[in-house]
Write a protein that binds this DNA or RNA. Sequence first.
DNA 1: AGTTTGACAGCAC
DNA 2: TGTGCTGCCAAAC
Length: 101
Amino acid sequence: MPDSPFSRRVLRVVARIPRGRVVAYGDVAALAGRPGAARAVGQVMRRAAIPGLPYHRVVAAGGLLGGFGRWPHVKAQLLAAEGLTIRRGRIAGFGNHRWQP
DNA sequence: AGTTTGACAGCAC
DNA sequence: TGTGCTGCCAAAC
């Protein structure tokens, strides 16, 4: 488990995303105390790869799916399993399913 | 210590 | 609507 302060905050935020809700990388960055560090958030999660964390609930801006390592389709699958509708790589009604603490 | 690397974001075409 | 380019940031080399 990554030990840098930033990494811990990012992972902590991701851990508390409720089931069936999603957030943008940029939002996670802001919640982690580093607005604008959206790209770094993805970097941290990719490297951390901690089992049990709902990484699939973190999407790109505008409800785009964004990346998910080598298995982008799994991300869509997991989100669909939580009741979300994915259409052409985007989350339908992103604004409604978006998580805000 | 400087450079490269991405699970990004926003804007210009 | 879709593609491309630029700016950004933390971590790995």
